[in-house]
Design a protein around this nucleic acid. Structure first.
Lengths: 345, 345
DNA sequence: ATGCTTTTTGTATACGTATACAAAATCGTT
DNA sequence: AACGATTTTGTATACGTATACAAAAAGCAT
């Protein structure tokens, strides 16, 4: 074993600015392998060697190359998160929680927002080993691609929206029960002529909330007629527009249930635009209980789903799966709760 | 050159699932280098070879390994974006635009949200070559670290918040002028006893908007007394709280200017909580003109800054810099415009 | 056909790190 | 002091891709 520097005496810093473990080795007078071992700290290293190496890393400002590490370790330490409309305040809350949880676990987060190709690109990113796994918050009809990905054992978790019969980890709230809660509440208060504004027809959230609500209304003897059911793509503006048309009808409904809060805000805005208000002229109920729902400006009655908890749980499922790929898929469902506020009653 | 397969005849798919360019080469009966050339399409390739290779890629489902590519090309094709509070609706709008623009350019986006270490970790990510550059939307006092990073020629762009004397690309709106606009408007309408709610004292946006506003009020002969100036950390809740205290005073101010819309919503909420309203009991003015500001529920008078355009511009600056690292730093400033709505006048 | 230029392809290597294996150093025991 | 066990370190190589260089093939004019 050499007595002096094992790694020769080249320039310590190249014009490129990149400092490699070899540079550190050279300065510390050890082999590159030893530097690597100091980094992964676990190994057997003589205390003085460790100090020498750490000093060299310090002076050179060594930072390992993420790509090289990813190649060797087969882990990128990056998680992808797919979202469809980050402008809907529900998603920032979920993202807030996801970034915190993943950050805590030492992962970075790649964000896909909107863009038709988001879901597909996220799956590609897994195959490129650019990300270790992906959390989908807005899965819908792309079941085929997802299925293919699953068969390749891609670590995937669905949160919020869920795909039936899809054998991956999934986290959702009990949307059917949540929808039913709303029906019960409205009927209890004698509001039986009501409208429903759904989101996207192929989103499980919208479907289940609608089903739970509409089925229960029917059970209770007050079926919601077709002409009082709408789809507004989870968009504030479309919900506002739809509600506007509803309000212009001769037989104005006495309550509107929206499949999420964001659309409920649109409904309230439609009322306000006409000089009307909730609950005076029409009750409005949302779903999610985003922070804004509790603001005095909206004071929205809504079904609370534990969004942040769901996010955390989804993140942890994914992290678990990265450690133990053969874990049986888990489907987790959180209970919901009706939060009564000023937009009703 | 060899007649048969140049890459031997190992297994075509390993248990790992990873398909490498070597596997493709083997199947297509060419060398790994040729596969690589087909990928980078630019090179000289015989049409039939290209087809053979493409077919092989297709059947094997080849996707290049991001880490390996990053290592060779010294480009990760990832851009970092740092945000402080994604829950503030201003940032989702900026993010929406950034993700679109960067996606279009073939870049993925790593998001840092909150967390004291965000800024620092983003800089580390550059040195790890995990990202090619970073867009900071919430730069404040970490000037030293930024300066160090800059000296290492790290591609950095600041948008929204800006750091004086910092020689990197920066995109902002003319916040001083914007603040002055508000002062002019209020005085024009005889509202001279006014309060100011700032964000964070070390955020350029808050500082400049405050300065523009307060200086102009003074110039016009209506200095805003110290006890009507507040800091509410750009938070809805704190602004609501501060406004509450303002409203409880004997000499209630006749208008409140908030350094961003999010806080203005808090101010409006404070009014509503007390059964008061804008503009009846107190005018409220915000800054940013986020989508929500135009919702009937808020109908907020505000200073519009072209947030989305700023985001796009910042993204392009960064992309330019990646191509031409020695570009002289550009400071871009967008003009602002007062948007008068129902919360005043 | 011959010799030339141009296109196409293969060989070899580098990027920066992690790790299996072997060599060296250290330690403890007798 | 000598030997074996243990700790520490170095050597060599692999991860998957891109590319400089050289070799082969193809094209073209004579």
């Amino acid at each position: 074993m050499g007595l002096g520097r094992s790694e020769g005496d080249g320039p310590v810093v190249k014009e490129d600015g990149m400092v490699t473990s070899r540079d550190v080795a050279r300065l510390a007078g050890v082999s590159q392998a030893t530097v690597s071992r100091v980094m992964s700290s676990a190994a057997n290293i003589a205390p003085e060697t460790r100090l020498k190496v750490q000093a060299a890393m310090e002076t050179l400002g060594y930072v390992p190359h993420a790509g090289a590490q990813a190649m060797k370790t087969r882990r990128a330490r990056i998680i992808g998160v797919v979202v469809k409309d980050i402008t809907n305040p529900f998603y920032p809350e979920v993202l807030d929680e996801l970034t915190r949880e993943l950050d805590r676990a030492g992962y970075r987060v790649v964000l896909w927002n909107a863009g038709g190709g988001s879901h597909q690109d996220a799956l590609t990113a897994i195959r490129e080993r650019a990300v270790d796994g992906v959390i989908f918050t807005t899965a819908t009809g792309e079941t085929v691609e997802l299925q293919v990905a699953l068969e390749k054992k891609s670590p995937i978790v669905l949160i919020n929206r869920v795909v039936e019969g899809f054998d991956a980890d999934q986290v959702a709230s009990d949307n059917v029960a949540g929808g039913a809660l709303v029906a019960d509440y409205l009927c209890d208060h004698g509001r039986t002529q009501v409208a429903f504004i759904g989101g996207l027809p192929d989103a499980s959230t919208s479907r289940d909330r609608g089903r739970g609500f509409l089925d229960r209304m029917q059970e209770l003897g007050y079926p919601v007629p077709e002409e009082l059911r709408f789809q507004a793509d989870f968009s504030h503006d479309r919900a506002q527009h739809v509600t506007g048309k509803l309000l212009d009808r001769a037989d104005r409904p006495r309550a509107i249930f929206c499949a999420n809060d964001y659309m409920a805000f649109g409904a309230i805005d439609a009322l306000r635009r006409r000089g009307l208000s909730a609950p005076g002229d029409c009750w409005v109920i949302g779903y999610d209980d985003v922070d804004m729902a509790s603001w005095p400006s909206f004071d929205l009655t809504t079904v609370r789903q534990p969004s942040r908890e769901m996010a955390r749980s989804g993140a942890r499922m994914l992290l678990d799966r990265l450690v133990t790929p053969d874990l049986p898929p888990r489907h987790q469902q959180f209970p919901c709760k009706l939060i009564v506020r000023g937009s009703t009653g």
